[in-house]
């Protein structure tokens, strides 16, 4: 049991960080389907940074910055040029898929994995410092949303940007900040995969974790604590599945697919059951036009 728990703390940080990134962006009213691509950029940049500087911490910073840079593209397209936010996010995912595959080959001459890079130090039970970030950050973000003027402004921007603008909020600037913060968190989540968990970059990263983070965000009703709880739940299901695949007989390995599909099916069921009570921020996904009325 305690092994399973430490497994959760080992594997949860990428998902928790990315899910918080989604919450931050969407509470300000900008849909972020591009989490997957931002995590991919972050994971790769972190591996490159750690490889060439020799420091996993600098790698982590590179990952966060790369995620934020990708988010800057999303912010530019969806805020300045009022692109459809879902389309912009999908485009970002496609670019990340192609560009990172190419850069992996160009940097390390490999289309599969990067060479091992310096990884974050782990404590006795395999946790990195990011495990504690994943525990503390949801609480911090919750306090920001619930208790600070900045949090109120962000929530107001996501619910009714015109009212927020009337009250003196610079809507586009605030939204851009939230999207950048979202990319920073997603990039950090990607870095947690490469320099945190695996100690190298794998061409398949983040293997759908960005999409799972989106599901966790919806499942957690767009709240930091809810999204983090959902992300921990997914990570627990993942850790449980891993343990199971170690313990079951090799002949039953073909059943692995069912176990892998279970968390997704469970999420869909829970969403279906609880959907009536789940509501997105009112202005989520609607481009803000300062001269428009709504």
């Amino acid at each position: 049991m305690s092994a399973a728990l430490s497994g959760v703390l080992e594997f949860a940080p990428p998902l928790v960080l990315a899910a918080l990134g989604g919450v931050l962006s969407e509470r300000a009213g900008v849909v972020n389907i591009g989490l997957e691509g931002m995590m991919r950029f972050g994971a790769f940049a972190a591996a490159v940074g750690a490889f060439f500087t020799g420091s996993p911490w600098l790698g982590l910073a590179c990952g966060a910055l790369a995620g934020a840079a990708a988010a800057a593209a999303h912010a530019l397209l969806s805020l300045r040029y009022r692109a459809d936010q879902v389309v912009s996010g999908i485009a970002l995912n496609l670019v990340a898929l192609g560009l990172v595959t190419f850069l992996l080959e160009a940097t390390f001459g490999s289309s599969g994995v990067s060479p091992p890079v310096p990884a974050l130090p782990r404590d006795a039970s395999g946790r990195t410092a990011l495990a504690w970030v994943a525990v503390a950050l949801p609480i911090l973000l919750h306090l920001v949303f619930a208790r600070t003027p900045l949090g109120l402004r962000i929530r107001a921007t996501g619910e009714n940007p015109h009212a927020a603008a009337t009250a003196g909020v610079r809507v586009l600037r605030l939204r851009a900040g939230c999207v950048l913060g979202s990319g920073l968190l997603a990039g950090l989540g990607g870095a947690a995969l490469s320099v945190g968990i695996l100690g190298q970059f794998d061409a398949r990263m983040p293997a759908g974790q960005g999409f799972m983070a989106l599901a966790a965000m919806v499942f957690g009703r767009w709240t930091p604590l809810g999204a983090a709880a959902a992300a921990f739940f997914f990570a627990a299901a993942d850790a449980f599945q891993r343990q199971l695949s170690f313990s079951v007989h090799a002949a039953d390995l073909r059943l692995q697919g069912i176990f892998l599909a279970l968390p997704y099916a469970l999420t869909l069921l829970l969403l279906t059951a609880g959907a009536g009570r789940i509501r997105a921020p009112a202005a989520d996904g609607i481009p803000y036009d300062p001269e428009g009325r709504s």
């Binding site: 389309v87 485009a91 970002l92 496609l94 192609g98 080959e105």
Partner: peptide, 22 residues
């Protein structure tokens, strides 16, 4: 030239379509 360029080109094409105002 790496075949991943195909995905890159597709992604950029979608980006361009996404933002007609650009």
């Amino acid at each position: 030239i790496h075949p991943s360029f195909a995905e890159l080109i597709q992604g950029i094409a979608v980006l361009l379509v996404a933002a007609p105002r650009l």
